[in-house]
């Protein structure tokens, strides 16, 4: 097949356009909700638009966005990774304790170590759920416990403190470049690279294929086990990265770091349009979902709405998102079917 022909402008009929529109509307919908939420909050409390407040918002969202990207890769293949928060804790403590004990270690080496640890955890999850034949829900529920337990054993009650961390490292967590927090630059880079890879590379497309119809993927010669394993390793690596960034951001790390994040991350992906049974969704959506959830939290805090509403709001939003997805999905499918039927008749 030729590889160098220039892309031709699309000749699309309404069916294709309709489907594409819906996909885009899905992400536009979140952007819309974000803007609306932001504007309303700013009107009620102008301090929300302060540089500090915005910076906090972005910082909070960044770690979740990175985790949500990894989670998306896994969910798209009809799997799930509940263990990300425990992996984050391991990697965060690893990076923190290494740099505390050996202040001379270069910062890049901390990233290599943290990501490496995440990849090892992801490999463990992936091997068990592909070659071991254990459902990923069970494997990662198990490692959610086991990795967290290992973190407790390892820290043995100790914690890493900000004072022992070098400034160069801490600056990563709190500094900014051209007004954008460094942490968010990491997140944006991760989202863009992952989004590009999922869209423009064979392996990325095959992840969707596996989640959309596993049997068809097998018949099409897709090496499902290997790719699912890859998704788990990448998800682990990103959790590892998030762990290093967690340490840089908060300075204080103990074995409870990130506890409970896993459900927020999955919620972010689902709110962002990633179908829990695979085949559908983008990392952009998931990252936007993470941003939306964080914004809700921040705006409720700044509006002094009792912080107690926060979790209920996130839960309600998540349910609203899946109900809407379902309604739109049913409509779209029947629209596409009618179009197909009319054309044949």
């Amino acid at each position: 097949m030729s590889t160098d022909a220039p892309p031709v402008p699309g000749r699309k009929d309404r069916g294709a356009r309709l489907a594409e529109l819906v996909l885009r509307v899905r992400e536009l919908g979140i952007v819309g909700a974000l803007v609306l939420l932001f504007v309303v909050t700013v009107i009620m409390e102008p301090r929300f638009a302060d540089a500090d407040s915005l910076r906090d918002l972005l910082l909070n969202a960044s770690i979740f966005a990175i985790l949500a990207v990894g989670q998306t890769l896994v969910i798209v293949t009809r799997n799930i990774d509940l263990s990300v928060s425990s992996v984050l804790a391991l990697s965060a403590y690893f990076a923190g304790s290494v740099v505390s004990d050996h202040p001379g270690v270069p910062v890049w080496a901390l990233f290599v170590m943290g990501i490496g640890m995440g990849m090892a955890c992801g490999l463990f999850n992936g091997v068990l759920s592909t070659y071991g034949g254990v459902p990923s829900l069970v494997v990662t529920l198990g490692t959610l416990y086991a990795f967290r337990g290992l973190a407790f054993l390892w820290t043995d009650g100790r914690q890493v403190n900000a004072e022992t961390l070098p400034d160069a490292f801490l600056n990563l967590g709190s500094g900014s470049v051209l007004g954008v927090p460094t942490l968010s630059l990491f997140a944006i880079a991760v989202v863009l690279v992952a989004g590009w890879w999922m869209r423009d590379f064979r392996a990325g497309r095959q992840l969707y294929a596996i989640g959309s119809n596993p049997e068809a993927a097998r018949l099409a010669g897709v090496r499902s086990q290997r790719l699912v394993l890859l998704a788990f390793v990448v998800c682990g690596a990103l959790a590892g990265l998030a762990g290093v960034l967690f340490t840089a951001r908060f300075g204080t790390v103990d074995a409870t770091a990130g506890a409970g994040y896993e459900l927020t991350v999955i919620a972010a992906a689902v709110v962002g349009g990633v179908a829990i049974f695979g085949g559908v969704g983008t990392v952009y959506g998931a990252a936007l979902g993470a941003l939306l959830l964080t914004t809700i939290t921040s705006s409720l805090i700044i509006l002094k709405v009792s912080a107690f509403w926060q979790q209920a709001a996130i839960g309600a939003l998540l349910i609203l998102a899946i109900v809407l997805d379902r309604v739109v999905g049913v409509r779209l499918e029947s629209a596409l079917r009618q179009r197909s039927a009319r054309r044949v008749a």
Binding site: D13, G15, A16, A19, L332, L336, R337, R339, S340, V344
Partner: peptide, 10 residues
Amino acid sequence: NASRPVRGLS
């Protein structure tokens, strides 16, 4: 149409 999704095809 090659660009449309397979979902909904007869």
